[in-house]
Amino acid sequence: MRRAKILVTSFLCAIVAVGATSGKMYLALAGIVIGALFMALVRRRSGEVHTDERVEALGGRAARATFVIMSVFLGLLSLAFIFIGRNTGDGGLEALGTVFSYIVCLNCAVYSITFKYFDREHGGEY
């Protein structure tokens, strides 16, 4: 089973590589799509367990950590961009910083909405 997987994967990789190097985008795209389909099929057929409650709990923590890290990073980056843009008169940098700060706000708002959703979904209200 494992050997078959490796064989198919390397074959598809070769197709994608040939498609990409010869500039035939549809060939590369088809290779990627077929690969994704094949993987989904194999996963379903093999019946192996890939996610369980521990993986889900870890995923939740990783997602939260990612959220915090990205928010802080993008927030600081946007502040720096706005500050540098203002000082050097580079409007593009300032606009980029502004958009980044909007992204941080969006991130926080989406987080709180999804949190509220799951809070209600697993709450005792109904």
């Binding site: 367990v49 890939h50 996610t51 369980d52 409650e53 521990r54 993986v55």
Partner: peptide, 14 residues
């Protein structure tokens, strides 16, 4: 055991 309870082996180890 992992297969019978439907989790990964890593979870049983943990």
């Amino acid at each position: 055991l992992a297969r019978r309870v439907g989790v990964t082996r890593q979870t049983i180890i943990a």
